[in-house]
Amino acid sequence: MLQGELDLEDEDHRDRTRLMVALDALNQRYGKGTVHSGATGGTNRGKDWGMKQERRTPQYTTRWEDVPVARA
């Protein structure tokens, strides 16, 4: 899954050569895929994290009774 963009502003045409050189240097020093752009969708190393879903009920999107209520 790739991160999309909202096209609300004009495209930024800044030169990012120095940024890419720095990313390449970090990845060369600390290992491939250590630093990457958020829009790239991550690395191919597998899933390092996941949402905690222990309290979610099986019908959390289809039954009003199972939707949690927050009170302030």
Rank of each mutant, 00 (worst) to 15 (best):
R55L: 15
R14Q: 13
V35T: 11
A25P: 00
K32P: 01
M51E: 06
V67P: 00
R18L: 13
R71Q: 07
L19E: 13
Q53P: 00
T40K: 04
V21P: 00
G46V: 02
T57C: 06
D24E: 15
R45E: 01
E5P: 00
L19H: 12
T62R: 12
N44H: 09
A72H: 07
K52V: 15
K52W: 08
P68V: 07
L8M: 06
V21I: 13
G41D: 06
A22K: 14
R29A: 12
S37F: 12
S37G: 01
H13D: 13
T40V: 06
R45F: 02
Q28D: 13
P68Y: 10
L19I: 15
D10N: 10
G42P: 00
P58C: 02
E54L: 10
N44T: 14
N27M: 03
A39R: 13
E9L: 11
G38I: 04
P68E: 03
Q59T: 15
D12V: 08
M1D: 11
A72V: 11
H13W: 07
M51A: 08
E5I: 05
T61E: 15
N27H: 04
D48Q: 07
G33E: 01
T34H: 03
E9F: 11
G42M: 00
P58D: 09
M1W: 12
A72N: 06
G4C: 05
N27F: 03
R18G: 02
E9Y: 06
A25H: 08
A22F: 12
M51D: 07
G42E: 01
T34F: 06
Q28C: 03
E5L: 10
T57E: 08
L26Y: 14
R45G: 05
Q59S: 15
L23S: 05
R55Q: 09
G50E: 14
V69M: 08
E65H: 05
R18F: 08
D12I: 12
D24M: 08
R71P: 00
E5R: 11
T43V: 11
E9V: 07
R56N: 07
A70M: 12
